[in-house]
Design a protein around this nucleic acid. Sequence first.
RNA 1: GCCGACGUAGCUCAAUGGCAGAGCAGCUGAUUCGUAAUCAGCAGGUUGUAGGUUCAAAUCCUAUCGUCGGCUCCA
Length: 581
Amino acid sequence: MKTVNLKEDFGLEVLRHSTSHIMAQAVKRIFPEAKLGIGPSIKNGFYYDFGIDGALLSENLAQVEKEMRKIIKENLLFEKELVTKEKAIEVFRKRKEPYKVQLLGGIEDEKVTLYRQGEFVDLCRGPHLESTGKVSFFRLLSLAGAYWRGKEGNPMLTRIYGTSFYTEKELEEYLEQIEEAKKRDHRRLGRELELFSISSDLGAGLIIYHPKGAMLREIIESFEKEEHLKRGYQLVRSPHISRSVLWKKSGHLDFYRKNMYLFSSGNEEYVIKPMNCPAHMLVYESKVRSYRDLPLKYFELGTVYRREESGVLHGLFRVRGFTQDDAHIFCMPSQLVEEVRKVVQFAIFMMDAFDLGYQMTLSTRPAEFIGSPEHWEKATQALRDALGAEGLDFQVAQGEGAFYGPKIDIQMEDTLGRLWQGPTIQVDFNLPERFNLRYVAPDGEKKRVVMIHRVVLGTIERFLGVLIEHVGGAFPPWLSPVQVKILTVTEKENSFAESLHGQMVNEGLRSEMDLRNKLLGFKVREAELEKIPCMLIIGQLEAKKGLVTVRKRNGENLKNIEPQRFIQMVKEAVREKRTEI
RNA sequence: GCCGACGUAGCUCAAUGGCAGAGCAGCUGAUUCGUAAUCAGCAGGUUGUAGGUUCAAAUCCUAUCGUCGGCUCCA
């Protein structure tokens, strides 16, 4: 089974890569001055980059598609040619392809392969299909800017994204899938379910929570607080603003300034906190600490503000004001492995509690770093050991660690398959140094404390976004802002409905009533669209007997239920965190 | 920040230089009804904002704010 799948994927890669060459050929026919960048196949399709100085616009995509169909009809052979690097450089110099020449400069091998189809030549490892005629079901999807070789200082090329399949059915299904994903988009559901909104008057990247979204947050936050207390964390709190001297001391003013909101008051410069760590350092620093006190774990749902570049803002996933479930763990070097391991377990516990999938990355020492290489080696090994002890699969991102220490990142997927970083566990050699954080060891000597900086959901905002998309807005009862909606058949049952509502609210259930003079079918439809876990249908039958009919959001009915029994059912579903009542 | 696209009623979308419109939502009335839309009527707008071109601008131009898809950066 597995090998067949691999083959198919490989086949798709070849198809898509070949389609990207056809696209490049079409673009060159229409815009002979376009310079070729690179054109690989990617997860769900392919792209090709062109240096064309903005002459290629989205209105040209249809034209490019048309030319591609012509090339496919011409059924040109993909011809492979093995040449020396010098020969290849000469070919592309003649064809005025500076990016290809640059690429060749970076290749170590003596021989490279060229692929030709008709008048088009590309530097390419291959493999390709036999001929352009083998491609038929493709679609150009979007246009985007992309820096040459992904470096900000380089020229901006124009990138065309597209996809390609062997059958029309698969292409249609893929396009359909994208449409379906849009319905689960948290930005759309956030509005439809009245969870949150963003207002340009308030400011880009700043979230306002509406009653249902605020309730959802409250549920998640109180769950988190409890779980932290169970694990020996202590709650701390710090103000939103602080004097800039604190940030001078922490180093943020130098390294992080462009992301910080600063303001002055009198002669004093102030900072709106972009992080919680410096304040937590001050808590540690406030008295002499003994090795007997360690590990110390300070937890704060800390709301921070960062001046993010306008182009990166994205719904709840990338914002300027957000709340981290932030904690700082101070320990002795000998406790590091154990503490990291506990945090890894905690993060996984949280992911599991919300039924979310994830992937892990270990990021190691970057080119520029502070602290000694031995410390780095030990800390990186501690992270590796913690992951190993839990039997977790992880990728290693060489040199991707922060300048102040190695880290473990946990990424979560959104509905379109994009990855977003959630939980992160970072060892920090920098701040304990800058704040001179020490503890008194058994021998009476003062020693440098080791610090772990960690979040287990990441930020409440991003996490909520992922959660909304994961459940498609249909929250499990324990999280659902409204758990029950009482629907009356006619206004005659309103008083019974009101007494039921009072009873449930008293028992701590989140209940709403729909007493409007509307048809039952209409009320059911609305409650279904609100994705409320269950409805109570109250007509004459129920009112007379003092019982309720439960309609779950999947359409299933439970008849003649005692109100108290129903309340217990909901409580049980909440306690067990079941997805449905 | 950069590249491209977009911004019309609460929402989804029409109106291609010549009278700003529809459906849903909202409001009012009728209907008292059993599991995804009862019927009728009414109201809703400085076309994101500011400037410009024109006899005339939602439409063309400039700036600005915001949104979307990417790039870079990041939780």
